[in-house]
């Protein structure tokens, strides 16, 4: 237990060092964050334009889809900010840098996670958080709604962190990360931003049972919109995201034991 808290402290100090480094280039940071904000902001504008023309989709109004979009977008931005190292893991493997991480007496998970923390992801996070706040205002939230929303964002974040860890675990065997992996990460963001009921069965199955984005976003949102009584029991659903992350870490440990270096 003691080594784990010191590991977390190390992670935090690495993160802070990384952030301070990026803040040295202020103009660059501002432009990149703005760029991120604009990219996803225009994506949301396209969704809003669809609602402007068609009114609703499967009984969902713009505000309700905006809620889903905000949860998934901010969860993804947090995961990308905190676990970017896993996303770039193939570069770490190819350069043989992973060998160095193995030499250090700390968890490789934390070291890879702290490898690069991208501050510019704040642009994407803020955009999604604005959309989420706008959607929540309409729902006239009470304290328990806010708790559920926070749990949904956390659960979604854990799910995407788990996906990044799995993607990196694959790299132990394949060295390169195949582009097709983006299908579950970027594709997950896109898919889970809309009510799952609009998709064909194979897509619903993938994002319910293989990747638990349905239980961190769509299902609790549906219950939330229908709820008339106490709603805190919904919290069980986003918890699946945490389980998914824990399972991914176990698979990572398995992959790590089979790692052979590419270095010379």
């Amino acid at each position: 237990m003691k080594s784990q808290t010191s590991g977390l402290r190390l992670y935090l100090s690495l993160v802070v060092a990384c952030l301070r480094g990026q803040l040295q280039y202020q103009a660059s940071f501002v432009m990149m964050a703005l760029g991120q904000f604009l990219v996803t902001g225009l994506e949301f504008a396209a969704i809003a334009a669809l609602f402007y023309r068609f009114g609703s989709v499967h009984g969902w109004q713009l505000r309700q889809v905006a809620f889903l979009y905000g949860v998934v977008g901010s969860g993804y931005a947090l995961a990308e900010g905190l676990c970017r190292g896993f996303d770039q893991f193939s570069a770490i493997i190819r350069r043989g840098d992973f060998d160095r991480l193995l030499l250090r007496p700390r968890s490789t998970i934390l070291q890879v996670a702290a490898f690069e923390v991208q501050l510019m992801r704040i642009g994407r996070f803020l955009q999604a958080a604005f959309v989420l706040a706008w959607a929540l205002m309409h729902l006239q939230p009470d304290a328990s709604t806010l708790i559920v929303a926070a749990a949904m964002v956390t659960g979604t974040m854990c799910t995407f962190c788990g996906l990044f860890v799995l993607q990196a675990t694959l790299t132990f065997f394949t060295i390169e990360t195949p582009e097709i992996v983006n299908v579950v990460t970027y594709g997950g963001v896109e898919t889970a931003s809309f009510p799952l009921s609009i998709y064909p069965g194979w897509l619903r199955f993938t994002f319910t049972w293989l990747v638990p984005l349905a239980s961190t976003a769509y299902l609790p949102a549906r219950l939330l919109f229908k709820a008339h009584g106490p709603i805190l029991h919904i919290l069980i659903l986003p918890g699946c995201g945490l389980l998914f992350l824990l399972a991914s870490i176990l698979i990572w440990r398995f992959g790590e034991r089979r790692y052979t270096s590419t270095g010379s």
């Binding site: 068609f54 609703s56 499967h58 594709g187 897509l203």
Partner: peptide, 24 residues
């Protein structure tokens, strides 16, 4: 591989737009 990715994206986008078009 890129083509496989594009096929997936195409199917997702088509599902989304189909749902909207069926609504109105």
């Amino acid at each position: 591989f890129g083509m496989a990715t594009q096929l997936f994206w195409g199917l997702v986008r088509i599902a989304i737009f189909t749902a909207f078009l069926k609504a109105g």
